[in-house]
């Protein structure tokens, strides 16, 4: 289990403006490092991409022509700068195969993955916060042990297996919901929702198990704090004190995990899209990998990493709002 309070302790000594500035600088630096890493793996390491695309039997003239038309004959550094510069203006390059702009392909598929991740996290939180609280308060009773046991099992179940089982139960046996596919929200909201229910639930089952454990341990920590006893001595019941004074304090450590979990949620979405044949970023990415369409892979991975970094930065900054020890450190 990672240290729950890593961000909080590291940022504690500084004033709020400095904290924000440092965090934004780290974000930009991470973005640069990530783009270099992606570029090196996709553009520098694989060798001759033209050869990969045209196959072993290609003539040297056609290889040279393709290299030139893809811009592969230029130095690595200028190709990298072109790629990054293009992305800053919304140009993610053109697909090696379809010759369509990568940005357009990403844009049309972003919504599917976005909905999946958003609802997945929302459902997971709605389950994990109350259940984790109960598990913490009743940790010495049977109900607490049962919740801990269930979350332990949920942690071991792969999301895609949960998805397959859900399809079997709700689509094959009960015939309540569609087994796969996607309908855009604008076309038919009811069908849109029906197609999202099973993917979201399978994604949320695993996330809820992870989060339940974190919520539980954060609340167990808080329950032993002196201010909870003070609150009870002032007239709160055990649960009242936890609600009024415990949750806010526990949320500081839970929010850290939330950031890390969102990264795994994006990844989980890729797998779940594959289970339910949803036309999201994951499908785009997997199709591109199968075709070795590295321009699409590069762009899509960059978008996903960007999303993860934005979320992590937002999480770290939310301490400034949640924890007055950071917010008012300058006084």
């Amino acid at each position: 289990m990672p240290n729950l309070r890593r961000g909080a302790t590291r940022l504690r000594i500084r004033g709020p403006a400095v904290t924000v500035a440092i965090r934004v600088a780290i974000f930009l630096l991470s973005l640069v490092l990530a783009s270099v890493l992606i570029f090196v793996v996709c553009a520098a390491l694989p060798g001759d991409i033209a050869q990969v695309i045209l196959g072993q039997n290609a003539t040297s003239e056609s290889l040279a022509a393709l290299r030139h038309s893809l811009g592969l004959d230029r130095p690595l550094l200028s190709r990298y700068l072109d790629w990054v510069g293009g992305m800053l203006t919304g140009d993610f390059g053109t697909s090696f195969f379809t010759r369509l702009p990568v940005a357009d392909q990403i844009a049309t598929r972003l919504a599917v993955t976005g909905w999946l991740v958003f609802f997945g996290m929302a459902v997971a939180l709605l389950v994990a916060v109350p259940v984790g609280m109960i598990a913490a308060v009743r940790r010495r009773r049977l109900s607490g042990a049962v919740i801990s046991g269930l979350s332990q099992i949920g942690l071991a179940v792969p999301a895609f297996w949960a998805g397959i089982l859900a399809v079997f139960i709700f689509a094959v046996k009960l015939r309540w919901l569609p087994a796969n596919g996607y309908v855009p929200l604008r076309e038919d909201p009811m069908q849109w929702a029906a197609h999202l229910v099973l993917p979201v639930l399978s994604l949320a089952v695993v996330q809820a198990s992870v989060l339940t454990r974190y919520v539980r341990s954060a609340i167990v920590d808080v329950l032993e704090e002196d201010y909870i006893r003070t609150a009870r001595a002032a007239g709160w019941t055990r649960l009242g004190a936890l609600w009024r004074h415990g949750l806010r304090n526990a949320s500081i450590s839970v929010v850290t995990v939330l950031g890390l979990q969102l990264a795994t949620l994006f990844v989980g979405a890729i797998v779940i899209e594959s289970v339910f044949a949803l036309p999201g970023l994951g499908q785009l990415l997997l199709d591109a990998v199968a075709q070795r369409d590295l321009m699409v892979v590069q762009g899509t991975v960059m978008v996903l990493v960007f999303a993860v970094l934005v979320v992590n930065t937002a999480v770290d900054l939310s301490y400034v709002a949640l924890d007055p020890r950071i917010r008012t450190a300058r006084r």
Binding site: E225, D226, T230, A231, N249
Partner: peptide, 8 residues
């Protein structure tokens, strides 16, 4: 030092 809620 620890008897008061640090966030309030």
């Amino acid at each position: 030092m620890t008897a008061l809620d640090p966030t309030m």
